[in-house]
Design a protein around this nucleic acid. Sequence first.
DNA 1: GATTATTAGTGTACTAATAACACTATATCA
DNA 2: TGATATAGTGTTATTAGTACACTAATAATC
Lengths: 219, 219
Amino acid sequence: MTKKYLQPDVTVDVVLFMIEDGDLKVLLVEREHGPYEGMRALPGGYLHEGETTRIAADRVLHNKAGVDNVYIEQLYTFDTPGRDPRGPNFSISYVALVPSPLPIGESDDVQKPEWFSTKKLSKLAFDHQEIIDYAIERLRGKLEYTTIGFNALPKLFTLSQLQQVYEVILDKTLDKRNFRKKMDQLKMIKETKHVLSGMRQRPAKMYSLLAKPGTIKNF
Amino acid sequence: MTKKYLQPDVTVDVVLFMIEDGDLKVLLVEREHGPYEGMRALPGGYLHEGETTRIAADRVLHNKAGVDNVYIEQLYTFDTPGRDPRGPNFSISYVALVPSPLPIGESDDVQKPEWFSTKKLSKLAFDHQEIIDYAIERLRGKLEYTTIGFNALPKLFTLSQLQQVYEVILDKTLDKRNFRKKMDQLKMIKETKHVLSGMRQRPAKMYSLLAKPGTIKNF
DNA sequence: GATTATTAGTGTACTAATAACACTATATCA
DNA sequence: TGATATAGTGTTATTAGTACACTAATAATC
């Protein structure tokens, strides 16, 4: 094919969220060279030959955060002209939500990935702030009608932990009794015989999700 | 930049919906050559130099359907390997919803665009059936919490027409009185002094949308 | 071992939203 | 003028959402 049409560079960027210390945090790396050197950016990179964007996103998550098999979905394709000063570039972005505490060790990547509160971010490289804002919006939307929120927790969790996931993502406090009533009538979680104890307070019952995360609707 | 990374061809495909005869219809063209020759496909094409995907989508709509300034939003980026037998190809897809009856004349494009009911489609080129299915899903989702549905109607419309938009997209019948009550309490439309008459029945009051389509939430 | 601090866990009453349901009004057509 | 077709209109019952305060069980402290 003769080059009559635009063939942009394709990068894949991942907005990886985690909930920690009652805060919604996002994983950022430091740019080592090129445009925006020294600034914080979303973990990402060029698409390799033979890769789908989904596989590239998995690779980025594995290399930068040391996580595998996490919830991930395609977010949006950003193609504003000039978003990369080097030339035409599309960012196919993905959102992911991983459990806290992280089950796997940190990565040995050189770009020092770090978690930052989404509430106080300094100026980021490229249009990555815009991408993060859009990702938060998507996360909030999906929280209302899917089981996406459970991805922020390990397999066994307490109702207080679950409520905190909702509170942090929606950025508002919820009533404890109403929240539990809702969870009860949705019949999506089941009590286990485990308790979370040793925490200077009454031990909490632990629950598990009945269906696969991300599938059930009608919250 | 040396070619170490994948630079796929980028096509933009548009899922253009319209409601006609109580049916959700999608605009398809006939492929004149290349793979899937003679089969029906979504209107689309390669991205030109200097174009954003959004501008390319507008161009496709203008050329294939003769419509401008319609509601349109990015849907998804499809990149399954082998989706185009000619080589690596990304389809950045858009969904659009246009009013019926169409305010503008048909296009003079050679690919004879035609409207087809989404309920009975023959086998389509590429993964376009998958794209349409996903577009319908998105349309249904957005109908619940945005004013996207109003884009299927002209500026003045009757409540029965509006209800039909909801019924056709959601593929279920709605109760007339409950629908009107809901519209009333949402305070998003206002009565005009126009009526739609000449239709072998009692003339219907015409209404207009108060806010900009696509913006308001909380349906 | 008694006291304190901390979070877990529970029910009721009020309000708002949704769902089910049938008849009259006004035009066109024959 | 009678038939037909769609417009337009309220009430009741059910379900979901919201507001709100105390007791329970543990760890930590003295």
